[in-house]
Structures are given as structure tokens and as C-alpha cells.
Design a binder for these strands. Structure first.
Lengths: 98, 98
DNA sequence: CTATTTAACTTTGAAAAACAAAGCACTTTT
DNA sequence: AAAAGTGCTTTGTTTTTCAAAGTTAAATAG
């Protein structure tokens, strides 16, 4: 039998990063605070997971302004969309036997 | 919006434990070495993850003999089956938006 | 105009988890 | 008798997770 977990992406082992991605798939742009509230996280925790996703080029940050106040939003990249889809495919393959 | 990751089971954040469970769902009894080879793990690593699953009452250990040689096998419990299913449901709910 | 609050982090540090390697008791194979 | 396999446990390192506090800059309240 083939190793069933080999195709899972390590980055998505984390429930939080999984949650961020699943939110970003349906919201093409979302703010830091919205994510924080949806996932019920502290600033630092969310920021570090977002950082991991950004390092991997799975999400992109947009720093803009609302008036003169900064506003940071995040969106998924093409690579991120693909990697997330691959991960879900691997998951599905793993459990299709059910 | 509701927290999309709240219903995920922390025990299944681990790819390895996820793999063990997915194997046990289709094999009602499997040996330590088989698992080790399927998942490509070291003894210690596998043993500790199995231990976590056992503590949670998600798997059961059977210590027996083949002739006079010890043989340890593992199987999924009813609770484990249920918890795994719930986790998969939560995952599916999370990504159904796709 | 001063004080507090909010946004979005970064830094720090502690706790937990993952993991490999080695050791071990016992047995079978060579 | 020596080597190898089974199924662990122990040890110790590395990695990951996370909360808390600090930070900068702007907004708002008093």
C-alpha cells in the first residue's frame, strides 16, 4: 500500500492555516481583524500563521488606506489556491475508502 | 460568520494520526510494523502517536502471539470511528464553499 | 490638546509537540 | 553463537505553537 499521508501539505497540518485558507477561498479579500475574530485568535498567533502562509506564497498582503488609516487585507494567490486544492484532493483520496 | 475551525478535532491536526485513522477505518486490524512501513515512520514516532490515539480511546491495542512470537495489532474503536467521522464532516463543511 | 482606543504587527519567552536515535527484552533466523 | 526482527520506552534535540507585552501610527473621546 502507498503512504496515504505523503501528499498532504505540511503547511496545512495547522487548523488555523487551514481555516485561513478556507476563508480566503470564498472571500477574495479579507482584513486582519476579520480573520482574527472569525478564528478567535490573538494578534500574535494570527500574524505568525499569516506570515507562514505568506512565506510560502500562498497568500498576498495588501497594505492600503481607508482615508488615512492603514488597512491590511489578505488574499489567496494562484499558487495558494492550487496547493490548497492539492491538499484537499490528497485528503479526499485518503478517506475515499470510507 | 462562524468560526470554521471550531469543530475540528485537535487530535487529528496531526497528519500521522490522520493517516493511522484512515488506515484503521478500512483495515479492521493492523500491525505495528505494517503501519510503520505504510506511513514511513520511525518506531518511536509511530509509538507515540499510537499512544495519543489510545489515550483518547480512539484505537485499541491487541497483544497476541503468532506461534510464540509476540504480535501487536491495532483497531479502531466505536468512539474513534465517530470522532473521525465528525472531524471529516467538519472539514467538509469548512470547504464545501469551494 | 491630552488620554484612550484601535489596527496591525513584532518581539520575547514559555510550553507543547514532533521526531530521531539509542536502548531494551524477547524471540526467531542463520 | 551471532545477527536480526518486534514493539516498544527513554532521552534529548528541534520545531511549532501560542500568549502576552511592546510598538507605531492613526482615530476618537473628553
Amino acid at each position: 500500500m502507498k503512504n496515504p499521508i505523503a501528499d498532504l501539505n505540511k503547511i496545512f497540518d495547522s487548523r488555523i492555516r487551514l481555516g485561513v485558507m478556507s476563508i480566503l477561498v470564498v472571500n477574495n479579500e479579507i482584513g486582519f481583524n476579520d480573520l482574527k475574530q472569525m478564528l478567535e485568535l490573538t494578534d500574535g498567533n494570527l500574524a505568525s500563521h499569516l506570515n507562514t502562509l505568506e512565506q510560502a506564497d500562498f497568500i498576498k498582503v495588501h497594505k492600503g488606506f481607508i482615508g488615512r488609516k492603514t488597512s491590511t487585507t489578505y488574499s489567496i494567490t494562484a499558487l495558494g489556491k492550487q496547493a490548497f486544492k492539492s491538499h484537499l484532493d490528497a485528503l479526499e483520496k485518503m478517506i475515499r475508502k470510507l
